Simulated assay, not measured.
Amino acid sequence: MAEVVPVQVHPWPMTEGQLAVLKEAKAGADLEMKIIPTRAVPGLHARVLGLGGPPPWVSDCALVSNPCDVDSVRHALIWMLTAPADDERGFMAKDWLEAVLGDEIAELPTPECKCRCGNKLAVRNYHPLNGCCEPCFEEGCYLVEGMCFCD
């Protein structure tokens, strides 16, 4: 059975014409998955299919200036579902912030655990007092000679 993937769409609800274009675009995209259009909401950390423009919140978005053009929707859909997370061909959160705040926005790289275990520090597991990832913090590894014993 094919994987079922929700695709966030803005604006919502979709018109009958937009839904027909999306179905035709998906059929021509040669993707090994089924898609379910869903209402885009802030905070889901997924790419948004922006039909006519971006949503009014910060998000990574595949903009489709002409939602009636099947080829444009197909290219946007393929990018949304297959491009790696660091692919900046879409309208990214950084672009959204620059449009609102100006051109002085700089993205900071994700820090690594100071224990050099190789873990990337997500917001949920970053401990600001010592810069260790959650496993190292819980195991008490910290910065013992720069080695992590939590492998």
Rank of each mutant, 00 (worst) to 15 (best):
M1G: 14
M1C: 12
E3K: 06
V4R: 09
V5F: 04
V5Q: 11
V5E: 06
V5W: 08
P6G: 02
V7L: 02
P11D: 02
Q18N: 04
L19K: 13
L19C: 08
L22N: 04
A25P: 14
K26A: 15
K26P: 14
A27D: 15
A27R: 15
G28M: 12
G28C: 11
L31T: 05
E32G: 09
K34S: 14
A40G: 02
P42E: 13
G43I: 03
A46C: 10
L51Q: 04
G53N: 06
P56V: 13
D60K: 05
S65C: 01
N66L: 08
P67S: 07
C68K: 00
S72M: 14
V73W: 11
R74C: 12
H75G: 10
L77Q: 14
M80F: 03
L81S: 10
T82W: 15
T82P: 13
T82V: 15
P84L: 05
E88S: 03
A93K: 06
D95M: 05
E98F: 01
V100Q: 04
D103Y: 07
E104A: 10
E104Y: 06
I105S: 00
I105P: 02
L108A: 14
C115F: 08
C117S: 08
N119M: 04
V123C: 02
Y126P: 07
H127E: 13
N130K: 12
E134T: 05
P135T: 13
G140Y: 01
Y142E: 01
V144Y: 04
C148V: 00
F149G: 07
